[in-house]
Design a protein around this nucleic acid. Sequence first.
DNA 1: CCTACCGATCGGTAGG
DNA 2: CCTACCGATCGGTAGG
Lengths: 202, 202
Amino acid sequence: MPRRKLEPGLEPNRRSELLRAAARLFVEKGFDATTTRDIADAVGMRSGSPFYHFRSKQELLKAAMVEGLDAGYARLLAAIDGLADPEQRLRVLVRTHLGTLLEGECPAPMLLGETRALDAAAHAEIAAAFDRYQVPWQATLDELAHAGRISSAAPPLRLLLFGMLNWSKHWYRADGKLSLDELADSAVALLLGAPPGARGER
Amino acid sequence: MPRRKLEPGLEPNRRSELLRAAARLFVEKGFDATTTRDIADAVGMRSGSPFYHFRSKQELLKAAMVEGLDAGYARLLAAIDGLADPEQRLRVLVRTHLGTLLEGECPAPMLLGETRALDAAAHAEIAAAFDRYQVPWQATLDELAHAGRISSAAPPLRLLLFGMLNWSKHWYRADGKLSLDELADSAVALLLGAPPGARGER
DNA sequence: CCTACCGATCGGTAGG
DNA sequence: CCTACCGATCGGTAGG
């Protein structure tokens, strides 16, 4: 017996398959334009079956966002592990974030606009996940300010930075001339200005 | 006879009322979640009547975007009229754009994500309107680069700049501590770095 | 611009 | 996780 098709719920994979498909479709077509039938089709289920795994379409969105953000957070921590220089760390944060956003399967920040449909409790869970995600960013900006590389690390700076990165989802084309590395460099250069020692250490 | 209620089409106001209501609702609830009945209600019409003015819901979105962008463009030109200094002009462009976006009635850039629902012809019209809107920005950035105030005015810079401004729609609260002037200053400071002469001319 | 309406679709559920 | 289905809603239209 190769693999029982029955015994639902014992395949934890199905849940995350649904989540990934939902995230992709929500980004592609929007929350409202994506039907639960689309999501079911994408993973080879029948129309009613997603509701065995999730109570509602809203919960699918909430889970996709929270789990997507937490996965991105883990990727961030792994990428900056051991990097002591805040400038280098900023560069890695930016590049990793762009990778998640533009190449990854669950560009959670792009779904921010879709959360209109969610209730207050879901908003709170998502906000908490965003807060976690932003911790290493703010820490790095604080260090840069302390080192005099930027004039201030007040909150608007972090928000403007995320804005300039996240908006790239609207215009960046993977098949264009601009590579992700170059885009990351442009963003870091915009934030830090030209390197103080002319051509920098890297 | 105070005012004929009949004779439709002779009131050009109704069309722009529909457009303004549609833009506001599309931003608030999203294109798909906004029904043509919502839009009709918002201007006191019956459910079928918007279709007397617009062929489809899609055309309502397209018209709201194109006319919103062109109105913003006109506001931009009026605001920078006579400003010779590129740094001052950038500041005014940024502040005017934020005003349109965060206080105005038709924050067209925020509807960019909703255009998924439109066909290629509509996309082309909207892209043309965006191109018009960006002309004074690129010109100003080119001047700043020429004057040595920024190291390069290559296209990614303009796109990153729009991103950091447009994203503020997701987090900026008019009732918060940060004023629009302060936000504009933060954005300009991020782009230009600290003024070369320490505390600048303004 | 209104009335009356249609065909299609959608989120969700019962029961297995 | 499937079958079968419901109630509600939605974009759009005919005819005036």
